[in-house]
Structure formats: C-alpha cells, structure tokens
Design a protein around this nucleic acid. Sequence first.
DNA 1: TACCAGGTGACTG
DNA 2: CAGTCACATGGT
Length: 249
Amino acid sequence: MHSPNQIIYEFSHTRSEPPAPHPIAPRRQDIEWLFTALFDAYGPRNWWPTVHGGSFELVVGAILVQNISWGNVERALVNMRDTDVWSFPSILETPDEEMHEIIRPSGYYKAKTRKLKEFAEFIISRYDGDLDRLFALPIDEMREQLLSVWGIGEETADDIILYGAHKPSFVIDTYTKRLLGRLGWEIRGNSYSAYQQLFHEMLPHDTYLFNEYHALIDHHVARFCKKKPLCDRCVLANDCPVGLGITQP
DNA sequence: TACCAGGTGACTG
DNA sequence: CAGTCACATGGT
C-alpha cells in the first residue's frame, strides 16, 4: 500500500445510499467515496503548512494552532525564529513575559506559553530533547506519552503523530465532524475516539492516505462547508442532503 | 460590528 | 459521561 494512486483507484466512487433526511451510519463505501470525491476535486494537498520546516516547528505549530487560524500561528513562529527562541531549551529559558509577547499573535498566549513549556520539559526530561526518540515509539505508546503532557489533547497528539512522526493516526477536528454531519452521517457517541475508530476501521492504515484525507477535509470545509455553507460552489452538493436542500445545515 | 478560526482543561450535574 | 466555560488574537 505504498502507491497512493493504487489506493485511489480501488476506492468506491459512489455513496452507499442517496442523501436522505434522516442520518445513516456511514459504511466503508461512503468513507472511500468521500476521499475519492475530494481528491478528484482538489488533488494532493501535501499538507502541513510550514514557515521554516522541521520537527520542532511541527510540534510548536500543532500546539499554537489550537482553535486559531494558521495565519496567526505564522506570525508567532516568525517571532520565535526572529528572537532565537527556536529550540526546546530556549523555550524553557525564556521568561513567561517574553514568551507572551513572542507568541501573542497565536491567541491564548498565556495558556500556550505554558503548553510549550510543559512540552519542552517533557521532551527534554524523558527523551533528552530528541523528538526522533519519541517518534520511534509504536503509535499507541507515542500517543499515550503525548496525551500525558498538559496541553496536548487528542487532535494535537494525532497531528504530531501523523505529520511529525509520519505514522498513521487519523486526525479528527471540528471540520471533520461538521462535514460528516452535513453529509447525513451519524456517528455513535460523537466523541473524538468514535470518529477516529470509524476511519481506522474503514481504511487501510497508510500514512499518506491519512495525511491526504485529513488535509482534503480541511481544505474543502474551510472554503465551502463553512458554518454558513456555500453549497452552490460545493463539489459534494449533489451527494449531500444539505446541498440538495433536504436538511438544514 | 459581531462573528469566526484546524482545541484543551477545569468544572458541573 | 456529556455539557459548559475561559482562554485571546487577527481577518472579514
């Protein structure tokens, strides 16, 4: 399963059932169709935006982007680089008041200062400051380690595992939940793990596939499946109860 | 102008 | 367990 094109070629091109007013439990065919439809529309996203690149920036960016737009994060990353706060030791050495000013554009700057310092303390004390040692762990173990850090929740942990360690852990976010909800797919429990289990059960555990799938959802939802949806320009509209006017957003 | 953006932890019933 | 709230900046 190393050829992305082969995966796409094998995937379903149709939904299991036509859009209906009542929610259904999505089947494998639906999960495959959604990826195929988005990939056909937008092509490969080659995702995770970077300013300078590298694992350090990936982790810092994953924390700073929590509930904020990426544009805000870019400013904070540039500030960190410009002020030479560009390593875990230097994060710990920088006084809180300075960190506040440096990452202020990313919002929640006091909370995120603590989160960065908690992670820096964690990676230095347990892994000698070496992210690659953390990334070498099996997925479940790595996830458990990440979740033990204050400020790292499920999505941030999966961001780091998928886009940092390049291992297949599917990322769920508000965009994913909104899109599936609009498509009329009901997930039992509505919890993060319920959504993740769905994708993990329906798809081959392939890093490239998980990377592209989440990136495509983000790309699509951010542009068209907004809180106030732009169904007249949506490529999924004819397969979506909201797009067809059968249900309300 | 008010609303929104790639969450998380603390607290409540 | 599920719901609610604070946390905060910059763009539209």
